[in-house]
Design a protein around this nucleic acid. Structure first.
Lengths: 223, 223
DNA sequence: CTAGCATTCAAACGTTCGTTTGAATTCCCA
DNA sequence: TGGGAATTCAAACGAACGTTTGAATGCTAG
Protein backbone atom coordinates (compact mmCIF):
# COMPACT_ATOMS: atom_id res chain seq x y z
CA UNK A 1 0.00 0.00 0.00
CA UNK A 2 1.55 3.19 -1.18
CA UNK A 3 1.44 5.93 1.43
CA UNK A 4 1.30 8.55 -1.28
CA UNK A 5 -1.71 6.78 -2.65
CA UNK A 6 -3.85 9.83 -1.89
CA UNK A 7 -2.49 11.26 -5.08
CA UNK A 8 -5.75 11.83 -6.88
CA UNK A 9 -6.65 8.95 -9.07
CA UNK A 10 -8.16 11.22 -11.63
CA UNK A 11 -6.77 14.63 -10.93
CA UNK A 12 -6.85 15.45 -14.62
CA UNK A 13 -10.58 14.72 -14.79
CA UNK A 14 -11.23 16.98 -11.83
CA UNK A 15 -9.17 19.81 -13.21
CA UNK A 16 -11.06 19.60 -16.48
CA UNK A 17 -14.44 19.63 -14.76
CA UNK A 18 -13.45 22.62 -12.61
CA UNK A 19 -12.20 24.62 -15.55
CA UNK A 20 -15.27 23.69 -17.59
CA UNK A 21 -17.59 24.87 -14.83
CA UNK A 22 -15.98 28.26 -14.78
CA UNK A 23 -15.61 28.74 -18.51
CA UNK A 24 -19.05 27.42 -19.39
CA UNK A 25 -20.49 29.87 -16.92
CA UNK A 26 -18.56 32.75 -18.42
CA UNK A 27 -18.91 31.94 -22.10
CA UNK A 28 -21.39 29.13 -22.56
CA UNK A 29 -20.81 25.69 -24.00
CA UNK A 30 -20.27 26.55 -27.60
CA UNK A 31 -18.33 29.64 -26.66
CA UNK A 32 -15.76 27.60 -24.78
CA UNK A 33 -13.18 25.92 -26.98
CA UNK A 34 -11.27 22.81 -26.00
CA UNK A 35 -8.03 24.68 -26.42
CA UNK A 36 -8.97 27.41 -23.97
CA UNK A 37 -10.46 24.92 -21.57
CA UNK A 38 -7.50 22.57 -21.50
CA UNK A 39 -5.11 25.48 -21.22
CA UNK A 40 -6.98 26.81 -18.20
CA UNK A 41 -7.08 23.34 -16.66
CA UNK A 42 -3.36 22.91 -17.30
CA UNK A 43 -3.80 19.66 -19.18
CA UNK A 44 -3.12 18.52 -22.69
CA UNK A 45 -5.57 19.29 -25.46
CA UNK A 46 -6.28 15.61 -26.03
CA UNK A 47 -7.05 14.92 -22.38
CA UNK A 48 -10.75 15.69 -22.67
CA UNK A 49 -11.28 13.21 -25.46
CA UNK A 50 -9.13 10.66 -23.70
CA UNK A 51 -10.92 10.85 -20.35
CA UNK A 52 -14.49 11.62 -21.43
CA UNK A 53 -14.69 10.57 -25.06
CA UNK A 54 -16.00 13.84 -26.40
CA UNK A 55 -16.86 17.39 -25.44
CA UNK A 56 -20.54 16.54 -25.11
CA UNK A 57 -19.83 13.64 -22.77
CA UNK A 58 -17.74 15.96 -20.63
CA UNK A 59 -20.60 18.45 -20.45
CA UNK A 60 -22.79 15.70 -19.09
CA UNK A 61 -20.15 14.84 -16.50
CA UNK A 62 -19.99 18.48 -15.43
CA UNK A 63 -23.69 18.41 -14.61
CA UNK A 64 -23.84 14.97 -13.07
CA UNK A 65 -21.10 15.77 -10.60
CA UNK A 66 -23.25 18.42 -8.91
CA UNK A 67 -26.84 17.74 -9.92
CA UNK A 68 -27.13 14.15 -8.80
CA UNK A 69 -26.22 15.01 -5.20
CA UNK A 70 -28.41 18.12 -5.25
CA UNK A 71 -31.53 16.32 -6.37
CA UNK A 72 -30.77 13.50 -3.96
CA UNK A 73 -30.68 16.10 -1.19
CA UNK A 74 -34.00 17.51 -2.35
CA UNK A 75 -35.64 14.12 -2.21
CA UNK A 76 -34.05 13.36 1.16
CA UNK A 77 -35.38 16.59 2.66
CA UNK A 78 -38.82 15.85 1.33
CA UNK A 79 -38.63 12.34 2.75
CA UNK A 80 -37.77 13.78 6.13
CA UNK A 81 -40.67 16.25 5.96
CA UNK A 82 -43.17 13.61 4.98
CA UNK A 83 -41.93 11.25 7.65
CA UNK A 84 -42.79 13.86 10.27
CA UNK A 85 -46.29 14.60 8.96
CA UNK A 86 -48.30 13.32 6.06
CA UNK A 87 -48.99 16.68 4.42
CA UNK A 88 -46.29 19.25 5.26
CA UNK A 89 -46.96 22.98 4.92
CA UNK A 90 -46.32 24.50 1.49
CA UNK A 91 -43.69 26.78 2.93
CA UNK A 92 -41.76 23.83 4.33
CA UNK A 93 -41.92 22.10 0.95
CA UNK A 94 -40.64 25.19 -0.80
CA UNK A 95 -37.79 25.44 1.63
CA UNK A 96 -36.89 21.80 1.08
CA UNK A 97 -36.73 22.44 -2.64
CA UNK A 98 -34.76 25.64 -2.77
CA UNK A 99 -32.37 25.00 0.11
CA UNK A 100 -30.18 22.44 -1.71
CA UNK A 101 -29.94 24.83 -4.64
CA UNK A 102 -28.90 27.77 -2.50
CA UNK A 103 -26.54 25.56 -0.54
CA UNK A 104 -24.86 24.64 -3.78
CA UNK A 105 -24.44 28.31 -4.54
CA UNK A 106 -23.02 29.06 -1.11
CA UNK A 107 -20.52 26.22 -1.24
CA UNK A 108 -17.66 28.31 -2.50
CA UNK A 109 -14.89 25.79 -2.18
CA UNK A 110 -17.01 23.29 -4.10
CA UNK A 111 -16.96 25.73 -6.99
CA UNK A 112 -20.57 26.23 -6.15
CA UNK A 113 -21.19 29.76 -7.31
CA UNK A 114 -19.85 29.00 -10.75
CA UNK A 115 -21.95 25.92 -11.12
CA UNK A 116 -25.06 27.57 -9.76
CA UNK A 117 -24.86 30.28 -12.37
CA UNK A 118 -24.13 27.72 -15.03
CA UNK A 119 -27.14 25.72 -13.91
CA UNK A 120 -29.49 28.68 -13.94
CA UNK A 121 -28.36 29.45 -17.44
CA UNK A 122 -28.85 25.95 -18.61
CA UNK A 123 -32.56 25.81 -17.87
CA UNK A 124 -33.01 27.96 -20.92
CA UNK A 125 -30.19 26.47 -22.94
CA UNK A 126 -30.80 26.23 -26.68
CA UNK A 127 -28.67 23.11 -27.05
CA UNK A 128 -31.18 20.29 -27.25
CA UNK A 129 -28.89 17.57 -25.95
CA UNK A 130 -28.18 19.56 -22.82
CA UNK A 131 -31.86 20.35 -22.33
CA UNK A 132 -32.84 16.72 -22.62
CA UNK A 133 -30.14 15.75 -20.16
CA UNK A 134 -31.28 18.30 -17.61
CA UNK A 135 -34.89 17.35 -18.09
CA UNK A 136 -34.33 13.71 -17.39
CA UNK A 137 -32.23 14.50 -14.34
CA UNK A 138 -35.02 16.62 -12.86
CA UNK A 139 -38.10 14.62 -13.77
CA UNK A 140 -38.25 12.34 -10.69
CA UNK A 141 -37.68 15.24 -8.28
CA UNK A 142 -40.35 17.31 -9.98
CA UNK A 143 -42.94 14.57 -9.79
CA UNK A 144 -42.31 14.02 -6.09
CA UNK A 145 -42.62 17.71 -5.28
CA UNK A 146 -45.68 18.10 -7.42
CA UNK A 147 -47.38 15.29 -5.53
CA UNK A 148 -46.38 16.81 -2.20
CA UNK A 149 -47.78 20.22 -3.15
CA UNK A 150 -50.99 18.66 -4.41
CA UNK A 151 -51.50 17.12 -0.98
CA UNK A 152 -50.62 20.37 0.74
CA UNK A 153 -52.96 22.44 -1.45
CA UNK A 154 -55.90 20.15 -2.24
CA UNK A 155 -58.19 23.05 -3.04
CA UNK A 156 -55.99 24.43 -5.84
CA UNK A 157 -56.81 23.52 -9.43
CA UNK A 158 -54.16 21.18 -10.79
CA UNK A 159 -53.45 23.38 -13.77
CA UNK A 160 -52.94 26.46 -11.65
CA UNK A 161 -50.56 24.54 -9.42
CA UNK A 162 -48.49 23.50 -12.43
CA UNK A 163 -48.16 27.13 -13.44
CA UNK A 164 -47.26 28.30 -9.98
CA UNK A 165 -44.61 25.61 -9.74
CA UNK A 166 -43.37 26.82 -13.08
CA UNK A 167 -43.16 30.35 -11.73
CA UNK A 168 -41.34 29.17 -8.62
CA UNK A 169 -38.88 27.12 -10.58
CA UNK A 170 -38.23 30.09 -12.81
CA UNK A 171 -37.61 32.43 -9.93
CA UNK A 172 -35.11 30.06 -8.39
CA UNK A 173 -33.38 29.44 -11.70
CA UNK A 174 -33.11 33.12 -12.38
CA UNK A 175 -31.87 33.88 -8.90
CA UNK A 176 -29.12 31.32 -9.30
CA UNK A 177 -28.20 32.52 -12.74
CA UNK A 178 -28.27 36.24 -12.77
CA UNK A 179 -26.28 38.73 -10.82
CA UNK A 180 -26.66 41.42 -13.39
CA UNK A 181 -30.32 42.15 -12.92
CA UNK A 182 -29.95 42.95 -9.27
CA UNK A 183 -27.27 45.34 -10.33
CA UNK A 184 -29.47 46.72 -13.06
CA UNK A 185 -32.38 47.35 -10.73
CA UNK A 186 -30.33 48.61 -7.85
CA UNK A 187 -28.51 50.95 -10.20
CA UNK A 188 -25.27 50.22 -8.43
CA UNK A 189 -23.07 47.39 -7.25
CA UNK A 190 -24.77 44.29 -5.88
CA UNK A 191 -24.14 43.18 -2.31
CA UNK A 192 -20.56 42.35 -1.64
CA UNK A 193 -21.26 38.78 -0.74
CA UNK A 194 -24.30 36.57 -0.95
CA UNK A 195 -25.79 35.86 2.43
CA UNK A 196 -27.22 32.41 1.81
CA UNK A 197 -29.48 32.32 4.85
CA UNK A 198 -30.92 35.73 4.19
CA UNK A 199 -31.49 34.90 0.56
CA UNK A 200 -33.30 31.73 1.57
CA UNK A 201 -35.63 33.79 3.74
CA UNK A 202 -36.24 36.31 1.00
CA UNK A 203 -36.97 33.64 -1.56
CA UNK A 204 -39.14 31.53 0.73
CA UNK A 205 -41.24 34.52 1.73
CA UNK A 206 -41.72 35.58 -1.87
CA UNK A 207 -42.49 32.12 -3.23
CA UNK A 208 -44.75 31.02 -0.39
CA UNK A 209 -46.84 34.16 -0.80
CA UNK A 210 -47.01 33.64 -4.55
CA UNK A 211 -47.96 30.01 -4.21
CA UNK A 212 -50.75 30.95 -1.81
CA UNK A 213 -51.97 33.88 -3.84
CA UNK A 214 -55.77 34.36 -4.01
CA UNK A 215 -57.39 32.31 -6.70
CA UNK A 216 -60.50 34.38 -7.38
CA UNK A 217 -59.26 36.50 -10.25
CA UNK A 218 -57.66 33.58 -12.01
CA UNK A 219 -60.68 31.33 -11.62
CA UNK A 220 -63.02 34.05 -12.82
CA UNK A 221 -60.86 34.58 -15.91
CA UNK A 222 -60.54 30.87 -16.61
CA UNK A 223 -64.30 30.34 -16.57
CA UNK B 1 -45.12 57.65 -57.97
CA UNK B 2 -44.86 53.94 -58.64
CA UNK B 3 -48.02 52.10 -57.71
CA UNK B 4 -46.03 48.96 -56.94
CA UNK B 5 -43.97 51.04 -54.54
CA UNK B 6 -45.15 48.90 -51.64
CA UNK B 7 -42.50 46.44 -52.68
CA UNK B 8 -40.62 46.25 -49.41
CA UNK B 9 -37.72 48.60 -49.37
CA UNK B 10 -35.67 46.20 -47.31
CA UNK B 11 -37.33 42.84 -47.66
CA UNK B 12 -33.99 41.10 -47.40
CA UNK B 13 -33.33 42.74 -44.04
CA UNK B 14 -36.70 41.64 -42.73
CA UNK B 15 -36.29 38.08 -43.92
CA UNK B 16 -32.92 37.89 -42.21
CA UNK B 17 -34.30 39.24 -38.94
CA UNK B 18 -37.22 36.82 -39.03
CA UNK B 19 -35.04 33.82 -39.69
CA UNK B 20 -32.57 34.93 -37.04
CA UNK B 21 -35.32 35.22 -34.46
CA UNK B 22 -36.39 31.66 -35.03
CA UNK B 23 -32.96 30.11 -35.32
CA UNK B 24 -31.47 32.01 -32.38
CA UNK B 25 -34.36 30.80 -30.30
CA UNK B 26 -33.82 27.20 -31.35
CA UNK B 27 -30.04 27.02 -31.28
CA UNK B 28 -28.64 30.15 -29.70
CA UNK B 29 -26.41 32.80 -31.22
CA UNK B 30 -23.23 30.86 -31.57
CA UNK B 31 -25.11 27.74 -32.52
CA UNK B 32 -26.59 29.48 -35.55
CA UNK B 33 -24.26 29.75 -38.52
CA UNK B 34 -24.56 32.36 -41.20
CA UNK B 35 -24.93 29.66 -43.81
CA UNK B 36 -27.91 28.07 -42.10
CA UNK B 37 -29.45 31.44 -41.33
CA UNK B 38 -29.16 32.83 -44.84
CA UNK B 39 -30.40 29.56 -46.30
CA UNK B 40 -33.49 29.68 -44.11
CA UNK B 41 -34.04 33.32 -44.98
CA UNK B 42 -33.64 32.54 -48.66
CA UNK B 43 -30.97 35.16 -49.16
CA UNK B 44 -27.35 35.06 -50.17
CA UNK B 45 -24.67 34.25 -47.65
CA UNK B 46 -23.10 37.67 -48.03
CA UNK B 47 -26.37 39.52 -47.43
CA UNK B 48 -25.96 39.73 -43.67
CA UNK B 49 -22.59 41.39 -43.90
CA UNK B 50 -23.82 43.64 -46.64
CA UNK B 51 -26.93 44.87 -44.84
CA UNK B 52 -25.79 44.82 -41.22
CA UNK B 53 -22.00 44.84 -41.37
CA UNK B 54 -21.45 41.80 -39.19
CA UNK B 55 -23.22 39.02 -37.38
CA UNK B 56 -22.99 40.88 -34.06
CA UNK B 57 -24.55 44.00 -35.53
CA UNK B 58 -27.40 41.90 -36.87
CA UNK B 59 -27.97 40.41 -33.42
CA UNK B 60 -28.37 43.91 -32.08
CA UNK B 61 -30.87 44.70 -34.83
CA UNK B 62 -32.87 41.59 -33.94
CA UNK B 63 -33.32 42.87 -30.41
CA UNK B 64 -33.90 46.49 -31.21
CA UNK B 65 -36.71 45.71 -33.60
CA UNK B 66 -38.84 44.29 -30.75
CA UNK B 67 -37.40 45.60 -27.52
CA UNK B 68 -37.50 49.31 -28.23
CA UNK B 69 -41.26 49.27 -28.83
CA UNK B 70 -41.83 46.96 -25.86
CA UNK B 71 -40.02 49.14 -23.38
CA UNK B 72 -41.67 52.20 -24.85
CA UNK B 73 -45.02 50.53 -24.19
CA UNK B 74 -44.00 49.79 -20.62
CA UNK B 75 -43.10 53.39 -19.99
CA UNK B 76 -46.27 54.60 -21.67
CA UNK B 77 -48.46 52.38 -19.50
CA UNK B 78 -46.68 53.61 -16.41
CA UNK B 79 -47.13 57.19 -17.55
CA UNK B 80 -50.84 56.57 -17.92
CA UNK B 81 -51.08 55.01 -14.48
CA UNK B 82 -49.22 57.83 -12.80
CA UNK B 83 -51.28 60.43 -14.62
CA UNK B 84 -54.40 58.95 -13.04
CA UNK B 85 -53.04 58.81 -9.48
CA UNK B 86 -49.76 59.74 -7.93
CA UNK B 87 -48.99 56.35 -6.37
CA UNK B 88 -50.69 53.49 -8.24
CA UNK B 89 -51.30 50.13 -6.58
CA UNK B 90 -48.44 47.60 -6.81
CA UNK B 91 -50.66 45.19 -8.70
CA UNK B 92 -51.38 47.81 -11.36
CA UNK B 93 -47.68 48.53 -11.70
CA UNK B 94 -46.91 44.84 -12.10
CA UNK B 95 -49.56 44.55 -14.75
CA UNK B 96 -48.17 47.52 -16.63
CA UNK B 97 -44.78 45.88 -16.65
CA UNK B 98 -45.65 42.34 -17.66
CA UNK B 99 -48.46 43.10 -20.09
CA UNK B 100 -46.23 44.39 -22.92
CA UNK B 101 -44.06 41.31 -22.52
CA UNK B 102 -46.96 38.91 -22.70
CA UNK B 103 -48.49 40.87 -25.54
CA UNK B 104 -45.28 40.40 -27.46
CA UNK B 105 -45.53 36.68 -26.85
CA UNK B 106 -49.15 36.56 -27.96
CA UNK B 107 -48.49 38.49 -31.16
CA UNK B 108 -48.07 35.43 -33.34
CA UNK B 109 -47.95 37.14 -36.70
CA UNK B 110 -45.27 39.46 -35.38
CA UNK B 111 -43.14 36.40 -34.78
CA UNK B 112 -43.77 37.14 -31.14
CA UNK B 113 -43.52 33.73 -29.59
CA UNK B 114 -40.13 33.13 -31.13
CA UNK B 115 -38.79 36.42 -29.97
CA UNK B 116 -40.26 36.08 -26.51
CA UNK B 117 -38.47 32.80 -25.97
CA UNK B 118 -35.31 34.25 -27.41
CA UNK B 119 -35.60 37.20 -25.07
CA UNK B 120 -36.14 35.06 -22.01
CA UNK B 121 -33.08 33.08 -22.91
CA UNK B 122 -30.99 36.13 -23.41
CA UNK B 123 -31.35 37.44 -19.88
CA UNK B 124 -28.92 34.73 -18.90
CA UNK B 125 -26.84 34.82 -22.04
CA UNK B 126 -23.13 34.17 -21.56
CA UNK B 127 -22.14 36.40 -24.46
CA UNK B 128 -21.00 39.61 -22.83
CA UNK B 129 -21.74 41.88 -25.76
CA UNK B 130 -25.34 40.72 -25.86
CA UNK B 131 -25.69 41.07 -22.11
CA UNK B 132 -24.38 44.60 -22.17
CA UNK B 133 -26.73 45.49 -25.01
CA UNK B 134 -29.77 44.12 -23.19
CA UNK B 135 -28.74 45.81 -19.98
CA UNK B 136 -28.49 49.24 -21.52
CA UNK B 137 -31.82 48.80 -23.28
CA UNK B 138 -33.57 47.98 -20.01
CA UNK B 139 -31.90 50.38 -17.62
CA UNK B 140 -34.24 53.37 -18.05
CA UNK B 141 -37.37 51.24 -17.77
CA UNK B 142 -36.06 49.54 -14.66
CA UNK B 143 -35.30 52.79 -12.95
CA UNK B 144 -38.76 54.16 -13.63
CA UNK B 145 -40.49 51.05 -12.32
CA UNK B 146 -38.25 50.91 -9.30
CA UNK B 147 -39.20 54.46 -8.42
CA UNK B 148 -42.88 53.71 -8.92
CA UNK B 149 -42.74 50.67 -6.66
CA UNK B 150 -40.84 52.60 -4.02
CA UNK B 151 -43.69 55.10 -3.91
CA UNK B 152 -46.28 52.33 -3.84
CA UNK B 153 -44.52 50.44 -1.04
CA UNK B 154 -42.89 53.13 1.12
CA UNK B 155 -42.67 50.82 4.12
CA UNK B 156 -40.54 48.19 2.37
CA UNK B 157 -36.77 48.25 2.87
CA UNK B 158 -35.08 49.35 -0.33
CA UNK B 159 -32.85 46.31 -0.46
CA UNK B 160 -35.75 43.92 -0.08
CA UNK B 161 -37.59 45.68 -2.87
CA UNK B 162 -34.61 45.27 -5.17
CA UNK B 163 -34.62 41.55 -4.52
CA UNK B 164 -38.34 41.19 -5.00
CA UNK B 165 -38.08 43.04 -8.29
CA UNK B 166 -35.30 40.68 -9.21
CA UNK B 167 -37.54 37.72 -8.41
CA UNK B 168 -40.38 39.20 -10.44
CA UNK B 169 -38.18 39.91 -13.39
CA UNK B 170 -36.86 36.37 -13.23
CA UNK B 171 -40.29 34.85 -13.13
CA UNK B 172 -41.37 36.80 -16.18
CA UNK B 173 -38.18 36.01 -18.05
CA UNK B 174 -38.51 32.35 -17.30
CA UNK B 175 -42.17 32.29 -18.24
CA UNK B 176 -41.35 33.84 -21.58
CA UNK B 177 -38.44 31.53 -22.19
CA UNK B 178 -39.41 28.09 -21.10
CA UNK B 179 -42.11 25.80 -22.31
CA UNK B 180 -40.29 22.69 -21.22
CA UNK B 181 -40.61 23.12 -17.50
CA UNK B 182 -44.36 23.27 -17.59
CA UNK B 183 -44.20 20.06 -19.51
CA UNK B 184 -41.75 18.59 -17.05
CA UNK B 185 -43.89 19.45 -14.05
CA UNK B 186 -47.17 18.53 -15.65
CA UNK B 187 -45.67 15.25 -16.79
CA UNK B 188 -47.45 15.58 -20.08
CA UNK B 189 -48.00 17.97 -22.96
CA UNK B 190 -48.42 21.64 -22.15
CA UNK B 191 -51.59 23.45 -23.04
CA UNK B 192 -52.34 23.49 -26.72
CA UNK B 193 -52.22 27.23 -26.98
CA UNK B 194 -51.19 29.99 -24.68
CA UNK B 195 -54.10 31.99 -23.39
CA UNK B 196 -52.48 35.37 -22.99
CA UNK B 197 -55.17 36.88 -20.81
CA UNK B 198 -55.31 33.93 -18.49
CA UNK B 199 -51.56 33.85 -18.21
CA UNK B 200 -51.54 37.53 -17.35
CA UNK B 201 -53.97 36.83 -14.51
CA UNK B 202 -51.93 33.90 -13.26
CA UNK B 203 -48.71 35.89 -13.33
CA UNK B 204 -50.18 39.01 -11.80
CA UNK B 205 -51.74 37.08 -8.94
CA UNK B 206 -48.51 35.22 -8.24
CA UNK B 207 -46.24 38.25 -8.47
CA UNK B 208 -48.49 40.63 -6.56
CA UNK B 209 -48.73 38.15 -3.70
CA UNK B 210 -44.97 37.66 -3.72
CA UNK B 211 -44.28 41.37 -3.81
CA UNK B 212 -46.58 41.90 -0.82
CA UNK B 213 -45.27 38.93 1.14
CA UNK B 214 -44.93 39.44 4.91
CA UNK B 215 -41.65 41.03 5.89
CA UNK B 216 -41.27 39.74 9.46
CA UNK B 217 -39.17 36.64 8.78
CA UNK B 218 -36.86 38.46 6.42
CA UNK B 219 -36.38 41.42 8.71
CA UNK B 220 -35.73 39.18 11.70
CA UNK B 221 -33.09 37.29 9.73
CA UNK B 222 -31.45 40.43 8.40
CA UNK B 223 -31.02 41.88 11.85
C1' DC C 1 -32.17 54.13 -73.68
C1' DT C 2 -28.56 54.29 -70.58
C1' DA C 3 -25.45 55.69 -66.91
C1' DG C 4 -24.92 54.82 -62.18
C1' DC C 5 -25.96 53.09 -57.91
C1' DA C 6 -27.81 49.31 -54.95
C1' DT C 7 -28.08 44.70 -54.42
C1' DT C 8 -27.20 39.83 -55.21
C1' DC C 9 -24.29 36.14 -56.22
C1' DA C 10 -20.70 32.21 -56.34
C1' DA C 11 -16.34 31.53 -54.83
C1' DA C 12 -12.64 31.80 -52.00
C1' DC C 13 -10.07 33.64 -47.76
C1' DG C 14 -7.85 32.79 -43.35
C1' DT C 15 -9.04 31.11 -38.80
C1' DT C 16 -10.67 28.17 -35.38
C1' DC C 17 -13.19 24.30 -34.17
C1' DG C 18 -13.47 19.15 -32.09
C1' DT C 19 -11.13 15.19 -32.84
C1' DT C 20 -7.48 11.72 -34.04
C1' DT C 21 -2.95 9.86 -34.24
C1' DG C 22 1.20 7.53 -32.81
C1' DA C 23 5.12 8.17 -30.24
C1' DA C 24 6.93 9.42 -25.59
C1' DT C 25 6.39 9.25 -20.86
C1' DT C 26 4.71 7.85 -16.35
C1' DC C 27 2.80 4.66 -13.27
C1' DC C 28 2.04 0.34 -10.92
C1' DC C 29 2.47 -4.42 -9.91
C1' DA C 30 4.72 -8.98 -10.49
C1' DT D 1 13.79 -4.14 -11.30
C1' DG D 2 11.47 -5.03 -15.58
C1' DG D 3 7.34 -5.07 -18.49
C1' DG D 4 2.75 -3.75 -19.73
C1' DA D 5 -0.97 -0.76 -19.13
C1' DA D 6 -2.37 4.01 -18.41
C1' DT D 7 -1.65 8.55 -19.41
C1' DT D 8 0.40 12.61 -21.59
C1' DC D 9 2.11 14.96 -25.42
C1' DA D 10 3.02 17.60 -29.95
C1' DA D 11 1.30 17.58 -34.28
C1' DA D 12 -1.85 17.21 -37.69
C1' DC D 13 -6.70 16.23 -39.69
C1' DG D 14 -10.91 17.61 -42.11
C1' DA D 15 -14.84 20.39 -41.36
C1' DA D 16 -17.22 24.52 -40.35
C1' DC D 17 -16.97 29.15 -39.06
C1' DG D 18 -17.48 34.61 -40.18
C1' DT D 19 -15.97 37.46 -43.56
C1' DT D 20 -14.24 39.39 -48.05
C1' DT D 21 -14.00 39.82 -52.94
C1' DG D 22 -15.13 41.14 -57.59
C1' DA D 23 -18.10 40.18 -61.11
C1' DA D 24 -23.11 39.85 -62.42
C1' DT D 25 -27.64 41.54 -61.99
C1' DG D 26 -31.60 44.61 -60.90
C1' DC D 27 -33.49 49.01 -60.47
C1' DT D 28 -34.17 53.95 -61.11
C1' DA D 29 -33.27 58.74 -62.41
C1' DG D 30 -31.90 61.71 -66.31
Amino acid sequence: MNLRAVKPQHETRTRILDAAEELFMQQGFEGTSMRLLTAKAGVNLAAVNYHFGSKDAMVEAVFRRRLDPMNAARLAELDKLEAAERAPQPEAIIRAFIAPGLRLMADAKGGGRNFARLLGRTYSEPNKAVRALIGQMYAPTMQRYKAALERALPQMPREELVWRMHFMFGTLAYTLAATDTVQLIAGCKPEDRYDAELLEERLTAFLAAGLNAPLENVIRKAA
